[in-house]
Amino acid sequence: MSNYLIDINADVGEGLNNESELVPYISSCNIACGGHAGDMDTMKSVARLAKKHQVKIGAHPSFPDKNNFGRLNMKISDVDLCESLKQQIETLQDVLYSEGLKLHHIKPHGALYNLAAKNENTAEVIIKVIKRLEMPLKLYAPHNSVIERLAKKENIKVVFEAFADRNYNEDLSLVSRQNNNAILNNKVIILNHVLKMIHEQKIKTINGVEVPMLASTFCVHGDTENAIEILKFLTSELPKKGIIIK
């Protein structure tokens, strides 16, 4: 049986307070750093959990919009967005430094993530922020996205991400959370969803069409109703299929 090496990530520090249950079953985490959620206390608490369980730590910056949880596009100048993202990430870096930890990657949140996947201007702002941080950080981003293309031009290492618990449209955008079928809850369906992406490098979209998809890190959202059950199942079943989570 061929072995595949993957990462399982989750967004944390977003006010759900389920990290103590969730972190033991992931291999990397994305810590909210004040844009849509999170403060110094939550960052420190989650960072310590990640350290305990040897989980890689990423920053999860967002449009500075706590009222909408960063899930709506925001009218903001490039200069202000750049400064906000830089400040969010540096705040987390300060916390990590105080705990003897290092930042591994950047994963934009919500509307910012989705917009940067297709909008060159937004993607350029994020790339500019990463370059200004002057350290070799990885970027979690979708395959075949605008931000992936721009990051590679700047020699930023991109880790292709897919969402284990979300349905996709044919253009590889996520089905809107406004739709009833946006979120996957059935752990067996989710396992097969992930296996298809790993073994066939394809995803079955909401319309039943199969589209090429590359991914090596898979996100399970902490606010998915049965997220802990899903993660326990994936970490139990994937190794049986020759897939190593690391």
Results as ranks from 00 to 15, higher is better:
residue 218 F to H: 07
residue 220 V to T: 07
residue 210 E to V: 06
residue 205 T to D: 14
residue 225 E to L: 06
residue 231 L to K: 01
residue 237 E to L: 03
residue 201 Q to T: 13
residue 226 N to T: 11
residue 216 S to D: 14
residue 223 D to T: 00
residue 227 A to C: 15
residue 217 T to C: 14
residue 221 H to K: 14
residue 236 S to T: 13
residue 238 L to M: 09
residue 240 K to P: 11
residue 236 S to E: 15
residue 230 I to C: 03
residue 217 T to I: 12
residue 218 F to S: 08
residue 216 S to R: 06
residue 207 N to D: 15
residue 218 F to W: 09
residue 217 T to D: 13
residue 234 L to T: 11
residue 216 S to Y: 00
residue 223 D to A: 02
residue 221 H to T: 11
residue 238 L to P: 10
residue 206 I to P: 05
residue 202 K to L: 14
residue 240 K to D: 10
residue 224 T to A: 01
residue 238 L to I: 11
residue 235 T to N: 10
residue 208 G to P: 02
residue 233 F to Q: 05
residue 220 V to Q: 03
residue 210 E to Y: 12
residue 237 E to K: 11
residue 203 I to P: 05
residue 238 L to R: 06
residue 224 T to G: 01
residue 214 L to M: 10
residue 238 L to D: 09
residue 211 V to D: 03
residue 221 H to C: 10
residue 209 V to K: 14
residue 213 M to N: 08
residue 209 V to E: 12
residue 213 M to I: 12
residue 225 E to M: 04
residue 213 M to E: 00
residue 206 I to R: 02
residue 209 V to P: 00
residue 230 I to V: 13
residue 230 I to F: 02
residue 221 H to V: 08
residue 207 N to C: 08
residue 217 T to W: 04
residue 209 V to T: 15
residue 212 P to S: 14
residue 208 G to H: 07
residue 230 I to E: 03
residue 207 N to P: 03
residue 222 G to T: 02
residue 223 D to I: 00
residue 210 E to W: 04
residue 233 F to K: 01
residue 229 E to T: 14
residue 234 L to R: 09
residue 206 I to Q: 10
residue 201 Q to W: 03
residue 239 P to G: 03
residue 210 E to R: 05
residue 240 K to Y: 07
residue 231 L to A: 12
residue 221 H to S: 10
residue 216 S to C: 10
residue 206 I to L: 03
residue 229 E to M: 09
residue 213 M to F: 14
residue 239 P to I: 05
residue 219 C to A: 13
residue 216 S to A: 05
residue 204 K to P: 01
residue 206 I to F: 00
residue 235 T to F: 03
residue 231 L to Q: 04
residue 210 E to A: 03
residue 221 H to P: 10
residue 211 V to M: 13
residue 208 G to Y: 12
residue 223 D to Q: 08
residue 224 T to E: 01
residue 221 H to Q: 11
residue 213 M to D: 00
residue 208 G to T: 02
residue 202 K to H: 11
residue 225 E to Y: 04
residue 206 I to S: 08
residue 204 K to H: 01
residue 201 Q to H: 15
residue 236 S to P: 01
residue 228 I to E: 15
residue 239 P to Y: 02
residue 219 C to H: 12
residue 217 T to L: 11
residue 223 D to C: 02
residue 215 A to V: 02
residue 226 N to A: 10
residue 220 V to W: 00
residue 207 N to T: 14
residue 232 K to R: 00
residue 208 G to L: 04
residue 205 T to G: 12
residue 215 A to R: 06
residue 214 L to Q: 11
residue 205 T to E: 15
residue 217 T to Q: 12
residue 224 T to I: 01
residue 238 L to H: 06
residue 204 K to C: 06
residue 213 M to A: 08
residue 214 L to S: 06
residue 207 N to A: 10
residue 228 I to Y: 02
residue 216 S to H: 06
residue 208 G to D: 09
residue 232 K to M: 11
residue 222 G to N: 13
residue 208 G to C: 03
residue 209 V to W: 02
residue 234 L to W: 05
residue 235 T to K: 09
residue 233 F to G: 06
residue 204 K to G: 01
residue 203 I to D: 05
residue 233 F to M: 07
residue 220 V to G: 06
